[in-house]
Write a protein that binds this DNA or RNA. Structure first.
Lengths: 136, 136
DNA sequence: CATATTGTTATATAATGCTTATAACACTTT
DNA sequence: AAAGTGTTATAAGCATTATATAACAATATG
């Protein structure tokens, strides 16, 4: 399943799980119908409580990302693919877009630079990977 | 000052203030050297506690967005404009970029569509406004 | 200089959110 | 029937967020 908790990440654990599951779907590592790890199993493997994992799964269900049914394993839901007009999509991502735009601006990034940066994550979902230092 | 608390926003109040100040700077409504509202004044106008506003100002100071000096009003700091290499910028925005990319993907947005959406917020910071039948 | 303004520090308290801990229950699969 | 899995329930601990007061320190104002 390849989920890891990052201590340096200030977000709550369940949020990190939510994000990572979404990213795995984006990268194609998880596809429609695929089974997620059982809550107890994932919880044990991460050394956390069952309910923390379950909370993450509940959030994913509420966002339509996975399906939950009693007795059966959690499965990746059918893509919603709501055609979303521009303004509809903006409703869903509005907060993130505004925050990203403001933060990027304060970093002195141009629109092109930000686009390029974003493309890196859109392609396959894999980040830069570079560890701390990097050659220029 | 034009700051408003959104009850539907799940983020803490101080975070909303942080975001809105940043967005005002991005839009040019606040510029280098401009004074922010005094903590007590903003707190009163929002009907919240002094320390909640102060907490927001502290976070903004920690991010280099504003300067705080005893006895003087908070002022918008000189732009940091750290030239930031691509990977440096990614370090700062990495989490936001990954999350946005994944969420956009799950919404079925193409790279172009996401770029266009992002541009709306980059231009002036003002959201939608122009709605119509968009091409998909 | 005197006073008001403003950021800062210090306590204390309450409310909420996150995580853990146990246990039992309900549905599905084997 | 048994095992696996999601679900519900209850409780507790801890961190974060927000509130409430009060006093202090540096700056601005008159």
């Amino acid at each position: 399943m390849l989920i890891a908790i990052d201590e340096r990440d200030t977000r709550p654990i369940y949020q990190q799980i939510v994000s990572q599951v979404k990213e795995q779907i984006q990268r194609g590592e998880l596809q429609q119908g695929d089974e997620l790890l059982p809550v107890r199993e994932l919880a044990d493997s991460l050394g956390i409580n069952l309910h923390t994992v379950r909370n993450a799964y509940l959030k994913l269900r509420d966002q339509g990302v996975i399906n939950l049914r009693l007795g059966r394993r959690a499965r990746v839901a059918r893509p919603r693919r709501i055609p979303a007009t521009a303004t509809e999509a903006d409703m869903a991502l509005g907060g993130q877009l505004r925050e990203l735009a403001a933060d990027a601006f304060l970093l002195g990034l141009s629109a092109d630079e930000l686009h390029a940066l974003l493309d890196r994550h859109l392609a396959h979902g894999s980040p830069p990977e570079s560890d701390s230092k990097e050659k220029k």
